[in-house]
Design a protein around this nucleic acid. Structure first.
Length: 890
RNA sequence: GGGAGUUUAGCUCAGUUGGUAGAGCGCUACCCUUACAAGGUAGAUGCCGGGGGUUCGAGCCCCUCAACUCCCACCA
């Protein structure tokens, strides 16, 4: 046995800092995070959603890690072969932007001042120096990852995975190149996906412009917010049902300034109410217009340069940004008398999530994935239960995206990322290949170049569950035990990336492996501030996990997050509340301080279960119930329930009652009883540490080290307590509940007449339950200890009640405290009357139900029995109260 | 415009298949009682958003209204 530390040597408050660093290192050095076969003979794998290499741990990540690591530790203790697999995302646009900004600040150069190769080298250098700090932060949170598995999305294997998937899909013509209207970010000079565009309301204007009609005196009044795009117009559209304009369909309109002749077409898309009901059609720079253009076979004009300025089509306005051109063009129209009206108008405009600049819809040549088939399979896999969402409602979000699939634009005009594995030769042949090509397979030309674009970050993320386990390289798959861990067990993430990520992993896994990538998805809440607002830089309401850890310790932080994690959507995190959990951690620490001096006098093995006393059976039974709830709750991701159960057990059962009830024994003389009690205290404490360990790993491992036998391993490797019918003692639980009620009642009476905590009182208990009488008599010493009772008498209700006394009536027992001094009768009468009124109200509810024929006819047997029993006990209580009141009043 | 969610104690939230409301924090009073003042004991607090319905019985099921939040779509 390790030598217990004497109480006086242990600090009165727990200080987490050194403890945390110490144990993390011991776990890692001891290879406790590595997968190991255990008694469950099953594997369990969670892959960490790879944070951005540029990232810094925020409260949401902390919740990710807490929920995942708790499960991993839980399952590891239950004997699963567990793998917690860490990773890091190259985060294309984000990282490139960071480095571009840095280079500009330092050297006043843009990336285009460098060769692609040189600039990418700069990004790698940045990554090596500054990237991935977040991994250390995950360690600080206690993440028990197998770091040998650490994978970066640009590593060799993920790159092979990306190429293999791309080439297969390309050869099946499911990846194709097409001219399509995309969100063009003029700052990044790249296409971005729909999800990377945020719509913001912007104050703009409705410009009403006069269009001439060829061969007619009539004119059209076209309303637009973007007059500068008229150089790209290839039609004017009206609604075919619009009486005002329908006679003009088929005629030719003349665009102002550039005087281009375009057809007037009829299209249902045009809203009669909106604007003037007359729409200029710019298929090259508007999503709706692009669709209209397709329906009417209109030509597409691209009138912008890649930096968002007007090109040659813009004539004299060439080179101006769209923002400037808008003003200049409208002024010009005004001069010419063509601007009929200008109304201010609020309207949503897409902005680049990363760059913050307005997105220019633009037609360009991009790569797309046809997701029709994949999305269907991904929907089916959830419908048939191969993959389950917790909470289930998130299915709808998932379905809503996958049931209306739009082809996925995967090319980005960036330099940082997986380059598209498509090659071209100087004879315009095009092919895809997983190798780096130097010769055209068709014409044998050696003038070969690779497509300069890179893939959307989510393309490699979608393959993440496979590539981190070695796919598609057979050797790597064996090394990383692909067959053991795939499909992985559960994906844990926030709801904001159900579309981005969950859906894509599902599609790509079903496509490549014919299997789901994980069998469960737990969607956790979004962490908000205490007022329920999203944490954001602009509000300055973000919580830095490291401030919290410094203040309260990692365990308290983890416990706070876990107790808020269930099936809810938000966790409103108030730092002050975390302080409450710090206090709880400290409570555990002090419970150890209590038992520490006694440890040498008892073993943690319970020698003979049949020799236990009532309170010992009771605490074991409570422990057992708690284990049951925790196991069941963890299985279904109800961390909140698990935490509530263990919190109540530690605080209310173990500390408030069991420790208190042990004091007289430990201070007593009976060595055998003492030894037995110590061994139960120790046994239960060790189990309690095990129950707590998944959520609060550090303090539990620390205390375990003081308690464990020499031949016992670290707590991280111990078995998780489970329900055991041999440890259930129902009768002891019932009796103990009654004892607690009586003690509380005595304390309540004492407080009602301001008896000093130190002063002793006599107590008389009356009940008709013979077992209870015996039981209460046997507990004299405990009444003395816990309620400062001097004399206790227990008897039948037939006996005479003491004259001058105060009384509480419980359903099973009447509690009398006789008083010698003067009693404030009024106060006592008021107290009893209040209690009587409350009891009567409850009683009447039962009576009315008993008198309700329909209830007695329809209610199920057990409910009826409950009501009959309730009616009886409450009737007796009412009687007792009334009798005692009469006595008091006289 | 389409969809989803939320509304329960002062605050943050639980509430299993309908059986008559709970926790933590906070608050009040009294206590430095030999594990812990980051503590102890006792206590107060709810028309379970409004209205209607189904039922013997509704916080829970149905209808309806209201407020708040989020997601998707959207530059006439």
């Amino acid at each position: 046995m390790t030598t217990p530390i004497a109480t006086e040597d242990i600090s009165i408050t727990y200080s987490p800092t050194e403890v945390e660093a110490k144990w993390y290192k011991k776990w890692e050095d001891g290879k406790y995070f590595k997968p190991k076969k255990g008694k469950a003979n099953k594997s369990y794998c969670i892959i960490v959603p790879p944070p951005n290499v540029t990232g810094k741990l925020h409260a949401g990540h902390a919740l990710d890690i807490t929920t995942q690591d708790s499960l991993i530790r839980f399952k590891r203790m239950k004997g699963y072969e567990t793998l917690f697999l860490p990773g890091l995302d190259h985060a294309g646009i984000s990282t490139q932007s960071v480095v571009e900004k840095m280079v500009f600040e330092q050297e006043k150069k843009t990336r285009r001042d460098f060769s692609r190769e040189d600039f990418v080298k700069k990004i790698w250098a940045w990554k090596e120096e500054y990237g991935g700090h977040i991994l250390d932060q995950q360690r600080a949170m206690g993440a028990s990852c197998d770091w040998d598995y650490l994978t970066f999305t640009l590593d060799k294997i993920p790159n092979m995975a990306v190429k293999k998937f791309f080439v297969d899909m390309y050869n099946q013509k499911l990846i194709y190149q097409s001219d399509y209207i995309v969100n063009w970010d003029p700052m990044l000079q790249s296409a971005v996906s729909d999800q990377e565009v945020n719509h913001k309301d912007v104050q703009g204007n409705f410009f009403h412009i006069k269009y001439a009609i060829k061969g007619s005196d009539e004119t059209l009044e076209v309303a637009t917010t973007r007059p500068e795009t008229l150089f790209g117009d290839t039609a004017v559209a009206v609604n075919p049902n619009d009486e005002r304009y329908k006679h003009l369909i088929g005629k030719i309109a003349i665009i102002p300034l550039c005087n281009r002749e375009v057809p007037i077409i009829g299209d249902e898309h045009v809203d009669l109410e909106k604007g003037t009901g007359c729409l200029k059609v710019t298929p090259g720079h508007d999503f709706n217009d692009f669709e209209i253009g397709k329906r009417h076979n209109l030509p597409i004009i691209n009138m912008l340069n890649i930096d968002g300025t007007l090109n040659d089509y813009g004539m004299e306005f060439k080179g101006l940004s769209t923002k400037v051109a808008r003003n200049v063009v409208s002024k010009k129209l005004e001069e010419l008398g063509l601007l009929l009206d200008k109304k201010s108008h609020m309207h949503p405009v897409g902005h680049g999530e990363r760059s913050g600049v307005p997105i220019e819809p633009m037609v360009s040549k991009q790569w797309f994935v046809n997701v029709n088939h994949m999305s269907k399979r991904a929907v089916e896999a959830v419908e048939n239960g191969d993959m389950k969402f917790y909470p289930k409602e998130w299915e709808n979000t998932y379905y809503s995206w996958l049931r209306n699939p739009k082809d996925w634009c995967i090319s980005r005009q960036l330099w940082w990322g997986h380059q598209i594995p498509v090659f071209y030769c100087d004879n315009n042949h095009q092919w895809a290949s997983e190798r780096h090509e130097t010769e055209c397979p068709i014409c044998k030309s050696t003038k070969v170049h690779q497509d300069p674009d890179v893939l959307d970050t989510w393309f490699s993320s979608g393959l993440w569950p496979m590539s981190t386990l070695g796919w598609p390289d057979p050797k790597a798959m064996e090394e990383k035990k692909f067959s053991t861990f795939f499909p992985t067990t559960v994906l844990i993430t926030g709801y904001d990336i159900i579309f981005f990520w969950v859906a894509r992993m599902m599609m790509m896994s079903l496509q490549t492996q014919n299997q789901v990538p994980f069998t469960d998805t737990y969607i956790h809440a979004i962490v908000r501030d205490k007022l329920g607002r999203k944490m954001s830089k602009s509000l300055g309401n973000g919580i830095d996990p490291f401030d919290i850890i410094a203040l309260y310790g990692t365990d308290a932080f983890r416990f706070a997050l876990a107790s808020g994690a269930g099936y809810n959507r938000n966790i409103n995190l108030d730092p002050e509340r975390i302080g409450g959990f710090r206090n709880f951690i400290n409570k555990v620490w002090n419970a150890y301080r209590f038992i520490a001096p006694h440890l040498a006098n008892g073993s943690a093995q319970i020698a003979d279960m049949s020799k236990l006393d009532h309170h010992e059976r009771w605490i074991l039974s409570e422990l057992n119930s708690t284990s049951k709830i925790m196991n069941e709750s963890m299985e279904v991701y109800r961390y909140d329930e698990a935490c509530a159960a263990v919190y109540a057990f530690v605080y209310d059962k173990y500390c408030s009652w069991f420790i208190e009830l042990s004091k007289n024994i430990l201070n007593g003389e009976d060595a055998a009883t003492k030894a037995r009690r110590i061994s139960v205290l120790k046994f239960v404490f060790k189990k309690m540490l095990a129950l707590l360990h998944p959520v609060t790993p550090f303090i539990t491992e620390e205390l375990w080290s003081y308690l464990k036998d020499a031949n016992e391993d670290l707590l991280i490797a111990q078995e998780y307590p489970e329900y055991d019918s041999k440890l259930e003692f129902k009768e002891d639980q019932d009796q103990m509940n009654k004892f607690v009620e009586v003690v509380t009642s005595i304390r309540n009476l004492r407080a009602s007449v301001n008896i000093k905590p130190k002063d002793e009182v006599s107590v008389e208990l009356f009940t008709d339950n013979q077992d209870l009488i015996k039981y209460f008599r046997a507990n004299l010493i405990n009444f003395q200890e816990l309620a400062r009772v001097k004399n206790l008498s227990v008897g039948n209700k037939e006996l005479n009640r003491p004259n001058k006394s105060i009384v509480n009536v419980l359903t099973h027992t009447e509690v009398f405290v006789p008083l010698d001094g003067v009693i404030d009768l009024k106060e006592q009468v008021a107290r009893l009357e209040k209690e009587l009124a409350k009891t009567n109200a409850d009683y009447q509810k039962y009576v009315s139900r008993m008198n309700n024929e329909n209830f007695m006819k329809n209610a199920p047997e057990n409910v009826r029995a409950e009501v009959i029993e309730g009616e009886r006990t409450l009737r007796e209580k009412v009687q007792s109260l009334e009798e005692n009141l009469i006595q008091f009043r006289s």
